[in-house]
């Protein structure tokens, strides 16, 4: 039996705007086993990104509990959450979020430096990761000099830099052409085959073709989730 990597227990997340209360995630229960490749789909405003933010520790739930790799995130201090994010999580975003003043190599090194690891080891590992992404010839290029697909591959290399157990991706192919999106799908397949836990938000079914599970979110919860809460709603994408 697989150990649960991510566990959300009756999680609700509310935002307060001046004139209204927004319930982004409502009484959500979710179990994601270690090594799972979970795809999350759903309409805009259904709470997908909030879910990822809760798992990454960017947001704290209004109620309920988020447990990642045995750590209850609500019990961690800010410093511990930062350390958790640095070592356990690799984030991939729709808009890549590379530091424009840094080269590809420097961008990939950043998580290693934050972890206070040795610079020379960082360079060595970053070059290896970038080369694996087919970017060995782009090490010293700035983000502005790279295509969208290349930037996303740099971002993936950066996400893998500290060898995290969980990769969270929010619409990673949202800004990419078809060919680049297919490349990303292959990379995700590769990451998954290495035993990582992937949680990927996407509208692109091709990107999620290798997902072991796909859930659809609606109104802050899983569509058709059963009363046990821990059952995942699967979608046949074939």
């Amino acid at each position: 039996m697989k150990h649960n990597m991510i566990r959300l227990e009756n999680v609700t997340k509310e935002y307060f705007k001046p004139t209204q209360k927004i319930i982004a995630v409502s009484s959500l229960d979710l179990l994601i086993p270690r090594g799972e490749f979970l795809g999350i789909m759903g309409m805009s405003g259904s709470g997908k990104t909030t879910l990822i933010n809760l798992i990454a520790g960017f947001d704290k739930p209004s109620s309920g509990k988020v447990v990642v790799d045995g750590l209850d995130l609500s019990e961690l201090t800010d410093k511990q959450v930062s350390e958790f994010r640095n070592t356990k999580i690799g984030m991939i975003f729709q808009h890549f979020n590379l530091i424009k003043e840094f080269t590809a190599l420097q961008n990939v090194i950043v998580p290693f430096i934050i972890a206070n690891k040795k610079y020379s080891t960082a360079v060595e590992r970053a070059i290896k990761l970038l080369s694996e992404q087919g970017l060995g010839h782009r090490l010293h290029h700035y983000p502005a000099e790279l295509s969208g697909g290349e930037q996303q591959r740099v971002a993936i290399a950066r996400a893998l830099m500290n060898d995290p157990e969980i990769i969270l991706a929010d619409e990673p192919s949202g800004n990419l052409d078809r060919e680049s999106a297919e490349n990303i799908a292959k990379i995700f397949e590769n990451i998954h085959s290495n035993g990582k836990t992937l949680v990927v938000i996407s509208h692109d079914t091709k990107l999620l073709k290798n997902a072991t599970k796909i859930v659809i979110m609606e109104y802050g919860n899983l569509k058709n989730s059963n009363t046990n809460g821990c059952q995942l709603y699967s979608v046949d994408i074939t």
Binding site: I89, M91, I114
Partner: peptide
């Protein structure tokens, strides 16, 4: 924000 997402603390 990027550095925070990569694990830098706000204090740091």
């Amino acid at each position: 924000s990027i550095l925070t997402a990569l694990g830098a603390s706000k204090t740091g």
